Amino acid sequence: MFENKRLFVLDLDGTFYLGNKLLPGSLEFAEKVHSMGADLVFLTNNSSATKDEYVDKLVRLGVPENLFDVYTSAEATIRFLKENFPKKRVYLLAVPSVEKLFQWSGIELVDEKPDLVVMTYDKTLTYEKIEKFCDFVRLGVPFVTSHPDINCPTEKGPIPDVGSFIALVEASTGRRPDYVIGKPNKEILEMLIRDFDSKKEETVMIGDRLYTDIECGLRAGVETILVLSGETTSNMIPEDPPYHVYKNLEDIVKSMK
């Protein structure tokens, strides 16, 4: 399965680490991919941090910076806005560092009369912010969100993610997002395949969520692997699934030798 693979795309939360701890086999997996001469790219739906913050965290956890690259749904959302809604005014839900990333990228952020509203994983969310967001959604302003994950896995258990906030907005306004940018949309993975000059048959997608990571890989038509180190449990797997299943990255490394 791993012969002639040039691009390994991995989820982070629940796949490579959990909270502030690397999962079994994670560092060995990164080293193995590097020794193959292939690229390792972390594609995370978690938009509560910037690429630089993720790189800093991985290095702190002991992963050499030359072994990987990182792409987030926040970056993908910025790219989507610039390509599809250039020079539009945005009301944004985001943590301060991601808000600065949007501004640095040339996105005009406003508190009143936006052309569209954008929801990322805002761990600084307040009632005032969500109330204003819902007001704009009720007025029919186009609604963009970075990803649909309902929960984010942590060492202490799952915590509410953007999908939970989407449900809140829908319950209040009757509207769901007009655009969901991150996984499972195949476009985000196909974009990485192009950016890293790879081909679908040379690409592997690995993650722990059936409805985002695995669905994304299947939609894009690449080799897809589910790991049981995060959200998905063995009783959630259908009979004869169209993807491979491993306990964790440690088991994958063993099969690559």
Rank of each mutant, 00 (worst) to 15 (best):
F2H: 15
K5H: 15
F8M: 02
F8N: 02
F8S: 00
L10N: 10
D13L: 11
G14C: 10
T15M: 13
L18F: 14
K21Q: 13
G25H: 08
S26Q: 06
S26V: 08
E28Y: 07
F29K: 04
A30P: 01
A30D: 00
V33W: 09
H34C: 00
H34L: 00
H34K: 01
S35W: 02
S35M: 00
S35N: 02
G37L: 02
A38K: 04
A38Q: 01
L40V: 03
V41M: 04
F42N: 00
L43R: 08
L43Q: 05
S47R: 07
T50W: 01
D52A: 09
V55K: 02
V55I: 07
V55D: 01
V59P: 03
V63F: 00
L67N: 01
V70I: 10
S73R: 10
A76Q: 05
T77M: 07
F80H: 09
F80L: 07
K88G: 03
R89F: 10
V90N: 05
V90F: 09
L92E: 01
L92A: 03
L93V: 08
A94G: 03
P96S: 11
S97P: 03
E99T: 07
L101T: 05
L101R: 08
Q103C: 06
S105E: 11
G106S: 11
I107S: 06
E108T: 13
P114M: 04
L116S: 04
T120F: 03
D122L: 02
Y127L: 04
F133C: 05
F133L: 04
F136Q: 01
L139S: 09
V141H: 06
V144S: 06
P148R: 13
P148C: 13
I150V: 15
N151V: 15
P153W: 14
P153K: 14
K156C: 11
G157F: 13
G163M: 07
I166W: 09
L168G: 05
G174S: 09
R175V: 05
R175C: 06
R176F: 12
P177L: 07
D178C: 05
Y179N: 03
V180R: 04
K183C: 12
P184V: 12
P184Q: 15
K186C: 03
K186W: 08
I188K: 06
L189P: 02
E190V: 02
M191E: 08
D195P: 00
F196H: 10
S198E: 02
K200F: 13
V204C: 13
M205H: 11
I206R: 10
D208N: 12
D208K: 12
R209I: 10
R209A: 06
L210N: 11
Y211W: 15
I214P: 05
E215M: 14
L218G: 12
V222T: 12
I225N: 12
G230K: 10
E231F: 14
N235Y: 15
P238G: 15
P238W: 13
E239W: 15
D240Q: 15
Y243F: 15
H244K: 15
V245T: 15
N248D: 15
N248R: 11
E250N: 14
D251I: 12
D251L: 14
I252T: 13
